[in-house]
Computed example of a mutant assay.
Amino acid sequence: MLTTAGVLVIRQAFRVYSLQEFVGLKPQEGGKALGNRLRTDGILKRVRHPLYAGNLLVLLGFWLYIPTWANLITVGMAIGYIFIGIRLEERDLERQYGELYRQYKRQVPMLIPRFGRRGGI
């Protein structure tokens, strides 16, 4: 179930992101950017890093399905890599968008969405 949820989150993320830009077939316009504008639409209203969140769910689901030590080590290393990627991406986005991204960062959770009145921007 976690893996399925992760795939659904990733599908939602690709409604906001360009798959062609993501795989390098089309020139990139700036990550979460659209031209010079910070993207905060779609799933990005609820979570700042939906691709990473979806991948975390897929990895955890995989480990729960086949809970071996080798898979635990692999999943642990992949999770570490994801958090390093998040840190580097956020550093670049703060450089690019400054206070606008810091405000978005304060309002929208990194990986786990908040639901209700205060969920998102």
Score class of each variant (00 low, 15 high):
F22Y: 07
L25Q: 10
E29R: 04
N55T: 08
N71F: 07
A53M: 11
R15E: 11
D41P: 07
A5Q: 12
T68G: 02
G42V: 04
R46A: 13
T40S: 05
A5V: 15
G24W: 00
A13S: 12
Y17V: 13
F14S: 04
L72R: 06
L56S: 04
G42T: 06
R46T: 09
V7G: 01
P50H: 00
K45N: 12
G30P: 10
G35E: 03
R46S: 14
E21D: 08
K26H: 08
P27M: 05
A53F: 06
T3I: 07
Q12S: 15
N55F: 09
Y52A: 04
L56K: 01
W63R: 11
P27T: 13
L19Q: 06
F62T: 05
R15I: 12
A33V: 08
E29I: 14
R37C: 10
L44T: 05
Y17L: 13
L56P: 00
L38V: 03
V23A: 01
G61D: 10
F62R: 09
A33H: 06
V47R: 04
A5G: 13
V7R: 06
Y17I: 12
F14T: 05
T68K: 03
Y65D: 14
G54R: 09
F22S: 12
P50K: 01
V58E: 10
H49E: 05
R48P: 03
Q12L: 14
P67G: 05
W69M: 13
L60V: 15
T40M: 08
Q20R: 14
L51C: 09
L19I: 15
L25D: 10
I73C: 07
Q12F: 00
R48N: 06
G42I: 04
N71D: 09
Y17N: 09
A33N: 11
G42A: 02
I66C: 12
G6C: 13
G31T: 11
V75F: 03
N36L: 15
A33C: 11
L59R: 02
R15L: 12
S18C: 05
T68H: 01
I73D: 01
L51S: 05
F62D: 07
D41I: 11
L38Y: 02
A53C: 14
L60Q: 11
I10Q: 04
R15K: 11
I73Y: 03
A53N: 07
T4V: 14
V9A: 11
N71S: 10
A70K: 12
G30C: 08
R37A: 15
Q28H: 04
A5W: 02
R37W: 05
R48K: 09
G31A: 13
V23F: 02
D41E: 14
L25W: 09
L19G: 04
G61R: 11
G61C: 09
R48M: 06
T4Y: 00
A33G: 15
E21L: 07
